[in-house]
């Protein structure tokens, strides 16, 4: 089914077209899942929360009389709120301030990528970034969003997004550099 996201949402809301929901799911389920997965560190939890995102989105669309302006940003907002609720529900973290998504990510039992040492190293470096930087790297390089789209999701200006992205990439490279051996080292000669 063709059509931009706005058209699909309107079809869903006013024409009650289930195919519109199907198309929106196909477009966004995977990036939403990835977004949540990198925050909660567990496939099972990420699957549960992803289902909830779409159910809540569906319930909200049905209640709203006007269309949703930016469906992607709308989904990510729901996803963020659900992740916050998820952390709150964890016994050990009863306040937002006490939550450390970075620690959750680093300590998550994520398997190494078999037969690909290089990618494993890159993944480890991405996981070690702080949450704000990791989000940007995922949005820009894995989900291939534009700065404008990222800005809409994060409710920030494009300039801010670019600046933060630059810092994120720099930090990522530094983490990668720290795991690599110096390339030009030569043995000492007597």
């Amino acid at each position: 089914m063709k059509g931009n996201n706005k058209q699909l949402v309107l079809k869903l809301q006013f024409d009650n077209d289930p195919e519109a929901f199907s198309e929106l799911y196909d477009r966004f389920a995977e990036p939403i899942y990835r977004f949540i997965y990198f925050k909660v560190g567990s496939r099972v939890d990420a699957q549960d929360l992803t289902s909830e995102v779409f159910l809540k989105a569906w319930a909200a669309i049905r209640e709203k009389k006007e269309g949703v302006l930016n469906f992607r940003a709308f989904l990510y907002r729901i996803a963020r709120n659900l992740v916050v609720d998820f952390y709150r529900a964890k016994r050990q973290n009863t306040s937002i301030e006490a939550i450390d998504p970075d620690a959750i990510m680093v300590s998550a039992n994520i398997d190494r990528i078999a037969n690909n040492q290089e990618l494993s190293v890159v993944l480890k470096a991405v996981r070690s970034l702080k949450d704000e930087y990791r989000e940007l790297i995922i949005f820009r390089f894995m989900d291939q969003m534009s700065y404008k789209e990222i800005g809409q999701i994060l409710n920030k200006s494009q300039v801010t997004v670019r600046v933060t992205m630059h810092r994120a990439v720099k930090t990522l490279k530094r983490h990668l550099g720290a795991t690599e051996e110096p390339k030009n080292s030569s043995p000492q000669q007597s």
Partner: peptide, 16 residues
Amino acid sequence: EKQLRELKNKPQAGAA
């Protein structure tokens, strides 16, 4: 960039 794009398809990096 190429490596990050490649990661996209790995379950360990959040591929559903």
